[in-house]
């Protein structure tokens, strides 16, 4: 358990006692965490445990029900939208569902954050930059396509390129490799490592892929039912004594889930089968 003594200055991003409910359902249950500058933190946890909600709190796309969020020692969860807009330029956020603007081409999607904050003079240089960013994720040549004509994995990669377009200090990736083939996943892992090494980027990655988690993580955090149940380096997690953690990282089904599957066999009395419609 993380001690309650985490201070706002303990890391580039700090959350204290973060608590979030949706219609009385608790999603984040008093989380406290300090994220060190320049490190890659991987967040794992079962589907629906609140990873995405947690990440959104870090750039205050969601407001906490209770608790505080600090960025560079400054409290940000109570700022108004104008001040937040300023803070958010330090971040890149790669959405789980890509969230590309479907009325803009790939090229326009990537220059969007740049055009919003930088007075662009040299468009030739800009298109070089876009080419470079797209090449990093293996998507060069797709500049003039619309997102609707891309596959899920391609959209994800364009979204990644967009998240890193402004060279942010902190990049939050929500499942960047889900839906990508193994080789592409590894390219993304390498990209995350490269950005950390060369630009000293602080990264936070949500993933279900333990292989990439071990590869990129300086620290792994496991969320379960809105709490942190494991926190430490890859080796610490690999040998963690908690059963839930061990089951999760090895992808083993627990006794309770198996029991639910066994319940009632496979053919229910009330089940409709094709022969019923003859």
């Amino acid at each position: 358990m993380s001690p309650k003594t985490i201070q706002p200055q303990d890391g580039i991003l700090v959350v204290q006692n973060l608590y979030k409910t949706y219609d009385q359902r608790v999603v984040l249950n008093h989380l406290s965490l300090a994220i060190e500058k320049g490190k890659t933190t991987v967040v794992i946890g079962p589907s629906g445990c609140g990873k995405t909600v947690f990440m959104k709190h870090l750039i205050v796309l969601e407001r906490p029900t209770d608790g505080q969020v600090y960025f560079q020692g400054r409290r940000i969860d109570d700022l108004d939208e104008r001040e937040l807009a300023q803070i958010r330029t330090h971040f890149g956020f790669c959405f789980q569902g890509s969230a590309l603007f479907d009325s803009l081409t790939v090229y326009e999607n990537i220059i969007f954050p740049i055009e919003q904050h930088v007075r662009v003079i040299d468009y030739k240089q800009l298109s070089e930059l876009v080419k470079h960013k797209l090449a990093m994720v293996g998507m060069d040549g797709y500049q003039n396509q619309y997102p609707a004509s891309l596959s899920g994995g391609q959209k994800k990669r364009v979204a990644l390129a967009r998240a890193i377009a402004l060279n942010p200090e902190v990049i939050l990736y929500d499942e960047p490799t889900t839906g990508l083939d193994p080789i592409m996943s590894d390219i993304i892992n390498e990209l995350i490592l490269k950005l950390q090494k060369e630009l000293k980027v602080t990264s936070m990655v949500v993933t279900h892929d333990m292989k990439s988690a071990y590869k990129i993580a300086d620290r792994i955090i496991m969320l379960h039912k809105g709490r942190i149940i494991a926190d430490g380096g890859p080796d610490h997690i690999r040998t963690h004594p908690n059963d839930i953690v061990q089951q999760f990282i090895h992808g083993k089904v627990g006794e309770a889930e198996l029991a639910a599957l066994r319940l009632g066999g496979t053919r229910f009395e009330t089940q409709f089968l094709p022969e019923d419609f003859k």
Binding site: L61, A85, F91, F101
Partner: peptide, 13 residues
């Protein structure tokens, strides 16, 4: 489809 959140996340109102 979270495109409005995406606009926000890039520091644009």
């Amino acid at each position: 489809t979270e495109q409005i959140s995406a606009v926000q996340s890039m520091g644009t109102n």
